[in-house]
Amino acid sequence: MIIQALAFYLFAAITVASGVMVISARNPVHSVLFLILAFFNAAGLFVLMGAEFLAMILIVVYVGAVAVLFLFVVMMLDINFTELRQGFLQYLPIGALVGIILLVELIAVVGAWVVAPEAGLATSLPIPPPDQVTNTQALGEVLYTKYIYLFQTAGLVLLVAMIGAIVLTLRQREGVRRQNIGEQVSREATVEVKNVPSGSGI
């Protein structure tokens, strides 16, 4: 158990430290890189808990896709760093408010766990015992049976968001010449196929 404990403290410490660095780093690109480090260590914590599927999905989705686009956008921004610093005091009350709300919610969750330890069991009932099925299968069995309607609703919400994004950004421009590959390939008498004897070249 020593190794697990050491690994836990290592991952947890790096997660917290890189979380702090995300908001305190001067360069936004460094912030995103620290965010990626935080995701990584959170995935490590998931593995320690035995939730290997969630750990891998966290890396594939957040690190492999979301953070790439983040980094992509942040790298192309032309930011004036001194200007960015000036707004700090102005936005401090809003930031503090969000932080306090999150803190209260976390206290409520952890508090419920301390006051009534059996409350967690009630919500975790549909999950089959982890020593009998792999957690990929366990998640699938719960997600696609008990929560199928919620799952489908979430999918529809995402679909609507996607269509919305396309509608907002798509614009038809005049005078754009597009390539029609099918037409181009099926043109006759422009491409000739030659049979070249191998080993001698043309």
Binding site: V29, L33, I36, E52, F53, M56, I57, I59, V60, V63, G64, A65, V68, L71, F72, M75, T134, N135, T136
Partner: peptide, 25 residues
Amino acid sequence: DINVGILYLFAISSLGVYGVLMAGW
């Protein structure tokens, strides 16, 4: 011999882009 081997490989291959992005930037 982990249960989610193929997901692990997929995750690793999707990380390759960071080296390129970081180098370029």
